[in-house]
Structure formats: C-alpha cells, structure tokens
Design a protein around this nucleic acid. Structure first.
Lengths: 230, 230
DNA sequence: TGAATGAAAACTGTTGACAGTTTAACGTTT
DNA sequence: AAACGTTAAACTGTCAACAGTTTTCATTCA
C-alpha cells in the first residue's frame, strides 16, 4: 500500500485533502523529470505509488491540466506536456512582460521588509557567484523572482508567472540550470532592486523586462551551440 | 434523468469526455450568474441536473479551480469565487499589460486575413454604436479582443488573457456591459488596428495598454457613482 | 518474411456505495 | 426567550467495481 515515506507525510497534514496533496506530489514528479515529458501518466501506477485510489489522482491531474503540465486525450488519459523551442520563446516573452509589470508594481508597493530580504538575497547570490556554485545560484534566483512577485503584491500575477516557470521546466533539451550567466544576471538583479528602492516605476519595468529577455538570448545561444554539436 | 436540452447536446459530442463537457457547462453556469458568487456548489445537484455521476463533476470543478472560478475548502466542497474591487483593479492592470503585449506581437505577426477580419469587426462595432446597441457592441468587443490575441499568435497569452476575462465576470456589483463608452472605445480600437497594420510595434503596445487602462478608469468611475447612490 | 486479423490484456471513463465531516433541526435547560 | 447540547439529515472525500476503448501480441494467411 504505497511506500512509507510518502504515507507518513500524508498523516501529518490531515487538513488538506488527498487531491490537493497529490497536486503537489504529481507536480514534483513531473518537474523533477521522474515522469518524462511526452509519456502517458498511468493512473493506477500513481494511485498505487501513493496508496490511494484513482479518484483523487484523476482530480489532481485535471487540476494540473489547466496549468498546462499535462494534457488529456479522450480514452487515452493524461500525458505529460512537451514544451518545444517556439513554446519556450513564447514563454520567455510572456515572462519578460510579467516580470516588468511586477517590477513596476514593486516600485509602487514594495514593503521595506521585502526590500531588505531582496538585498540579503543579492548578497547570497554574490557569494554563490564567487564560489561558482551554479546549483545554489539557480535556487536563489528562483526565490528572487518569486520575491519580486510578492513585492508586487498581486496574487494573480504571481500565479500566472509561477505557472509559466513551471511550464518552462517541461523543456528538457537544455538544462535551465546551466543557462545562467551568474555575474551578469546578478548585476541585473541589483539594478532592478535599486530602481525599485528608488521608487522609479518606469526604470524598474524596463530593467525587469530586459533581464528576462537577456535570459531568452542566452537560451537561444545555447540552442544554437547545441544544434552545432549534433 | 437531467433535462432534455442538455442531454442531447451530450449525445452529439461523444468524442469528448463528460468531464470536459462539464467544464464548459459549469463554467457557463457560473459566468451567467446562475450559480451565484460566494455560494457553495452542490455536487449532487449538478450531477443530477446533467444526468451524470459526481465523479466527472468533481473533475470539472477541480479544473475550474485552477482558473480561479471556484475554490475548494476541505470537507466543504467547491465555492464560486468572489471577485472584489481590488481584485478587479489587479485584473485590469494585468489585462492592460497582456493586451499591450498582444498588440505588439500582432504588429509583428498579424496575418492579412486576420487584419481584414478586424476591420470588418470595426465596421460592425461602428454600426452598433450608431444604433446605440450596447448588447451587441459588448459581444463584438469581446470578439475583438479575442481576435487581438489570435493575431498575436501566442496560445499561452490567449489563455492567460481569457482566464482573466472570465474571472472579471465574477464581479457582480456593476454590470460590465454598461461600462463601455462605445464611441471612445471604438476610436481606440481603430487606432490599435492602424498601428498593427503599420507594423508599428511600440505604438501598438502603448495603445493596447492605454485602451484597457481607459476601461479601468471607467470601472473606477462607475464604482464611485454607485457608491454615492447608496 | 510480412501484413492482416482477432483475441486478450491494460487502461481509462464512469458509476454507485461507504465513511467521515459539516450543517441544520430540535428539544432541553436556564 | 436565549443558549446549549444532542441527534438527524445533507454533503463531501474516497474507494472499489463495471463498462467501454485502446493497445498489445500471438496467430493466420498471403
């Protein structure tokens, strides 16, 4: 009946329902790559793995379907969505616009406490850069962007942005972790925070957008580099 | 069981699954106001109404939950989300940014055929304006904005935008249909299409954003007017 | 050898039933 | 008459079983 480590986790959080727990669990499975893109999601296998019946699994999958993480085909079930090159470019553009908007809102609304946390993050990222620790930089970077959304104070914006970030992890041809130019990226971050701290709405928006577009450029460059290797 | 008109509709579309059909049906029920905001969604009642069991109903509700149309509370079920004033302002801002982005993309990508359809729409809206037919203007306006998203050629953008439009219909204090200043609004539309046709990316973006922000202003004005009536 | 065929296995879509929780009603007590 | 506690009804969360479809695979036939 499902392995021990997961079932105990369920015990601890009885406030939530199985479906909502499964949303997180299955999402993690997809984003980590344990459920490979393009493949079919086997409902009975998942249900067995988590020690539940198929009902909650299906409900969770339906939820994830609206995030674009899986897609349903009639009588064939749920498939882990694939994200290709044009999709990624589309996502980058949208992320750029949303990030710009977030920075603009943050320049208007950001609380001092959040700004303080941002500056702490910047320092931590500087240290990661010096230590050439790309792994932790990647995580801190995700946290930084999430913090930007918090500073903007728009839950909807944060949700849309988060959804796009998740979706971009469905692109498996190049690792997103190796894509970051740490020193350049953190220079952008500092410039963004400076504009937000100065309450300069327009500059914050411009820098936020430009930062993501720079990421898009690196992504395109990586694609070309990979393509020439083949 | 369920009433005749809906069950026949189910008969005609056997390719889809019950859950996916129910997504549209329940969504329509919510957006039309038949399921009032804030109220609990009774699963057995819905299931009976459509002549199906609770399983597909729950799956559909889980799907809609991710759109923000309903929210789940453990052991109490699904509730039709309420959208308040600050929510609406947030939505307007996001819609403005997304519309601006769509117009920019449209200026780059729009196909001649789509541009032609847009111009046809503009004329139809002009006629509706002269006839002071706010009802059809409202529908044409929705179609116009959907067309902008199509011209942009970004499915994700269209989906995000559509989700926001749906959500804004959960605000029930003032009717969105009475909010449109038809002549001003259509002047904006024509200016937007002109910029897109001229392939002027920056102007298209600016005008697209400004158009939605104008709607936001009208919304705020309507709120104040309503407030002083109380 | 290889394509066509047909049965069996695997899996999804849907249902009805059961368990546990929440809500409502009702009678009791102060 | 209001507050409290108890009990019944209603509803959600979950499960197991059934029906129908898709896939697999072995067999047959060209």
């Amino acid at each position: 009946m499902g392995d021990a480590s997961t079932t105990t986790a369920f015990e601890l959080r009885r406030s939530h329902t199985l479906s909502s727990l499964l949303v997180d669990q299955i999402e993690a499975l997809i984003l980590s790559g344990e459920l490979d893109v393009g493949t079919q999601v086997n409902e009975v296998a998942l249900a067995k793995q988590f020690g539940v019946s198929r009902g909650p699994v299906r409900e969770a999958l339906r939820f994830l379907a609206n995030d674009g993480l899986v897609s349903f085909v009639a009588n064939r079930g749920a498939f882990v969505r694939e994200v290709d090159e044009p999709d990624m470019l589309e996502i980058y553009d949208l992320r750029a616009v949303l990030t710009g908007h977030a920075c603009a809102l943050a320049a208007e609304n950001a609380q001092p406490a959040a700004l303080q946390e941002a500056k702490t993050l910047l320092k931590a990222m500087d240290r990661a850069t010096e230590a050439e620790d790309a792994e932790t930089y990647y995580d801190l970077n995700l946290r930084f962007h999430a913090l930007l959304m918090e500073m903007a104070g728009s839950g909807r914006l944060a949700r849309s942005y988060g959804s796009l970030v998740k979706e971009s992890h469905l692109f498996r041809r190049v690792s997103l972790k190796n894509l970051t130019d740490m020193s350049e990226s953190n220079a952008h971050h500092e410039a963004i925070i400076a504009a937000i701290a100065a309450r300069d709405v327009q500059t914050a928006r411009t820098r936020g957008e430009a930062h993501v577009i720079a990421g898009k450029r690196r992504f395109q460059a990586a694609l070309i580099a990979e393509g020439s290797q083949d």
